[in-house]
């Protein structure tokens, strides 16, 4: 009897030990991946930080892009972000509101959701192919800010639709009902009650989309990105330089790759900072939003 008891005790102990070993292992895996993230960020920050200066941000590239700054690429990315959000935001927000508040469940909604999910899964280079065939050639925009931002707006449209849906979903039914009970129409309720309530959620999604647009390369390869331009674009029908494409160019196909390496680190750092900033704002907004609820 005693023997049996000690045996089962031993068994419990070994099971407990196995559990602890496995949990430590899981923790190590998480630390390992965060370590990789740390290494990536450390490399780019440590190498890129010394390059960052007012001059780097505000000067034109010089000497075959081995010296000078990245000003035109920053401006170009700014243009692309602005115009793609200009196109994608109203459409995406309206679509999100429709799907949550107006649509009746059925075939049409299923179709729209299927299309939205698939659009989100289309590889970015396929967007580039489409943009080139449709915006650049078929609509005749040429390789331009317009063609590039329209292509990018398709890339972020599903993100904006989903975040809008999520945000609209969180609006409590009581508030809507109160508004309707006071005699407001559905649109008045949407416009005056639902939208303000969901605003910060929608804003979070849009800011994340800004980060996405600023970092995308494949969709702009053939729709707007220029290898090098000595001046800034003066209309939306001009080609532009853009930060991610600039990083790709100076790190792979420049004539003096070694010489432009510091600039590449600097450019990578600027891209990372834009993305980090957008993510940070999104996280802050999200937390604020949660507290409000």
């Amino acid at each position: 009897m005693e023997n049996n008891l000690s045996l089962s005790k031993g068994k419990i102990n070994s099971r407990k030990i196995a559990e602890r070993v496995i949990f430590i292992f899981l923790r190590l895996v998480a630390v390992f991946v965060l370590g990789i993230l740390g290494i990536i960020l450390y490399f780019i920050f440590s190498e890129g930080f010394s390059v960052l200066s007012i001059g780097f941000l505000t000067e034109m590239p010089k000497e075959g892009m081995t010296e000078g700054g990245i000003f035109p690429a920053i401006v170009g990315t700014g243009y692309l972000v602005f115009f793609s959000m200009l196109f994608a935001l109203p459409v995406g927000v309206c679509a999100g509101i429709y799907l949550q508040d107006y649509a009746k469940q059925g075939f049409l909604v299923k179709l729209i959701r299927l299309a939205t999910n698939n659009l989100a899964g289309v590889p970015s280079i396929v967007f580039g192919l489409f943009g080139m065939a449709f915006f650049v050639h078929f609509l005749g925009f040429g390789a331009s800010v317009l063609a590039g931002s329209l292509t990018l707006s398709l890339v972020v449209l599903p993100v904006i639709i989903r975040t809008t849906e999520e945000a609209v979903k969180t609006v409590p039914r009581e508030i809507r009902e109160a508004s309707l009970a006071l005699g407001a129409t559905k649109w008045q309720t949407t416009y005056k009650i639902v939208l303000p309530y969901a605003f910060s959620g929608i804003l979070t999604g849009s800011i994340l989309s800004v980060g996405r647009v600023a970092g995308e390369t494949a969709p702009i390869l053939f729709t707007c990105a220029a290898y090098f331009l000595p001046r800034l674009p003066n209309s939306i029908f001009n080609e532009v330089m853009a930060l991610p494409y600039h990083l790709y160019v100076i790190s792979t196909s420049g004539t003096q790759i070694e010489k432009s390496r510091p600039l590449a680190y600097g450019t990578a750092l600027v891209i990372l900072m834009i993305v980090a900033l957008t993510n940070l704002i999104a996280v802050i907004l999200r937390n604020k939003f949660k507290i409000k609820q």
Partner: peptide
């Protein structure tokens, strides 16, 4: 959130 071109650059240099 890290753009793929930055990953590519990191891969290339490291």
């Amino acid at each position: 959130g890290i753009p793929s071109v930055v990953f590519g650059f990191f891969g290339l240099v490291v």
